[in-house]
């Protein structure tokens, strides 16, 4: 009897845990990705305008913001994709600091695509399911 009760309690807890896991990581990723995409767009705009100083500041903010969330992301995302985004962002920052605008733009575009991929992993779609 005690075992049966324990199993029932565990099953309810597992269901609650799963429901939380379906919602919370996705929500966090969505919020973070929106913030990063906004900074990323600002950095791209600054690079296209030729404003290297602003682009450097935006890239710097992007790297700092991403690094702050890196550990949390690695709890529910494959570490490879997290490292790929960070690597692209660092590259963009280094290229912006060196004044290589086109290189920095390419690196930011790669980071943007990786962030989209991260979002796809957590978002439910039939394509992702199959």
């Amino acid at each position: 009897m005690a075992y049966l009760r324990f199993r029932r309690v565990c099953t309810v807890l597992f269901c609650a845990l799963l429901l939380a896991l379906f919602r919370l990581p996705q929500q966090k990723l969505k919020n973070d990705a929106a913030r990063w995409t906004e900074i990323l767009q600002n950095a791209k705009a600054a690079l296209l305008d030729g404003d290297t100083v602003r682009a450097q500041a935006e890239c710097d903010a992007l790297v700092t913001s991403f690094r702050a969330e890196e550990e949390a992301l690695e709890r529910f995302l494959n570490h490879d994709i997290v490292h790929a985004v960070l690597s692209d962002l660092r590259q963009a920052k280094a290229l912006a600091n060196a004044g290589d605008r086109s290189g920095a733009l390419l690196a930011l575009t790669a980071a943007e695509s990786d962030i989209e991929q991260m979002l796809c992993i957590e978002q439910f779609t039939w394509n992702a399911l199959l």
Binding site: L17, L18, E74, R75, F76, N78, H79, D80
Partner: peptide, 14 residues
């Protein structure tokens, strides 16, 4: 080590 623990926990619970 590149796979988060949750990638195993969720399928096992499933």
């Amino acid at each position: 080590p590149n796979i988060p623990l949750l990638y195993s926990v969720v399928p096992i619970l499933g």
